[in-house]
Design a protein around this nucleic acid. Structure first.
Lengths: 233, 233
DNA sequence: CGTTAATTTGATCATCTTCAACATGAGTGG
DNA sequence: CCACTCATGTTGAAGATGATCAAATTAACG
């Protein structure tokens, strides 16, 4: 039998959040659950025809765009309950989406979106909102990358992850990172070496305990202060 | 009498591009022409309630977000025929929009959008496309900022401007920049001093003649090569 | 286990920032 | 039309941040 959105523990965080119980019923019938995928596998790749939007059900994903020189740029990380794929609304996906660990997603196919939004104006508004939020997030990353020191960027990254984890019912202080140092560095516009040294500094200053991909935040406030602290570069 | 979109020289570049003549007629009645505004004036500011989308009719605009330290980050420049304001779809604008020179816009109010998209599915699709394009642009700027040298960033900026100017019927080689060195630097994540030195280098290498805000591109190909040239930093 | 990938650490170097001074230029009022 | 002013742009010298290169260490996985 098919699992429904109403049963899903992520319902409060996910797209259907904005829908009434009646709307939800219609919505559910359109959502496809996709088979789980192994770490490193692509959900879609740059240039693929836009198929729909995806909500992370379990695990996590990164999205990347590839530069002309073959190097990739990580443009985002997505945790359970988060929706991604908006970059594809222009007919083709401009990013690739890769599973960072054993993960699964729900798919909301384009055809369903087109059908549904006619009947459910709330869904339309929510999609617009999420898309606008994606733009806002990207733009604040722009600010991040150009006006912040390496230290501030990593602090911002951890603060953001902590908040999102907590929102999803995980611990906000004991983080299990699913992405590599290289991914983090790439996302933040740094090198893996710098990120490694920054983690070391966090340990030395007793802001966090870092052991491989496990990060235990000791002083959230200090991290938060670091982000907004007295200008950037 | 009211000017119509059909009369507008920018119709081919602007939002109504995707509409049939019949659709266009409905569309036009919804578009408001706003009085021209002087350089430095705000069209909207961060936190303003989302009123609608704007198309540049003449002149140009920049959008900025403000960081916690009071410093601003320029997130985009908009030329005639370009649409902006998508960041506001999440109820409130997350940017401020400032006229860079004597400028005018057409407004497509939110209420009209909601009414129109029901009747004109093509418009809906076009809006989605434009919004996706905004995301894609931002993300490629992310890549730009983190993986490119100062020189490559300025080259990319000029190439992009040149292409957009040409598309709008202006010269693609003789550019009249409406933004200050400071704005350019800010947009590219650099300082005004660095931008100034880079312009100097462009002159020395005979890639462009630069005189204040007038830039005459001498070797477009070389600029283009510089952008994609052999990795970044 | 052995092999490969990921991470850490160190030393050196380049790019870009910062600070400071000066030049230019557009606009304003005399 | 000119002198004055404020904003904008240019140039120079010094310093810092983060990149790069190289090597060691650890973790992951068949």
């Amino acid at each position: 039998m098919k699992l429904t959105c109403r049963d899903c523990s992520l319902a409060e965080l996910c797209l259907p959040r904005a829908l009434s119980p009646d709307d939800m019923e219609q919505f559910e019938t359109m959502v496809d659950q996709r088979p789980a995928m192994a770490r490193g596998n692509f959900l879609y790749q740059t240039g693929d025809v836009f198929g729909g939007l995806y909500a992370v059900k379990s695990g996590s994903f990164k999205t990347t765009i590839s530069a002309s020189d073959g190097e990739d740029q990580v443009t985002g990380f997505y945790l359970p309950g988060e929706l991604f794929g908006f970059d594809g609304f222009d007919d083709h996906y401009s990013c690739s989406a890769v599973a960072l660990e054993h993960s699964s997603v729900c798919e909301l196919p384009l055809s369903s979106i087109d059908q549904l939004v006619v009947k459910l104006p709330n869904l339309r508004r929510e999609l617009d909102r999420l898309m606008a939020r994606e733009i806002t997030t990207d733009q604040s990353m722009l600010l991040q990358l150009s006006r912040r020191t390496a230290e501030q960027r990593l602090a911002a990254f951890l603060v953001s992850l902590s908040l999102r984890f907590r929102q999803r019912g995980f611990s906000g202080t004991e983080l299990r990172l699913s992405m590599s140092r290289y991914d983090i560095a790439n996302y933040l516009g740094l090198t893996a070496e710098t990120v490694s040294r920054l983690f070391k500094r966090l340990k030395e200053h007793h802001l966090a305990l870092v052991n491989g991909r496990t990060v235990i935040i000791q002083d959230f406030e200090a991290l938060h202060r670091q982000v907004h602290g007295s200008g950037g570069r």
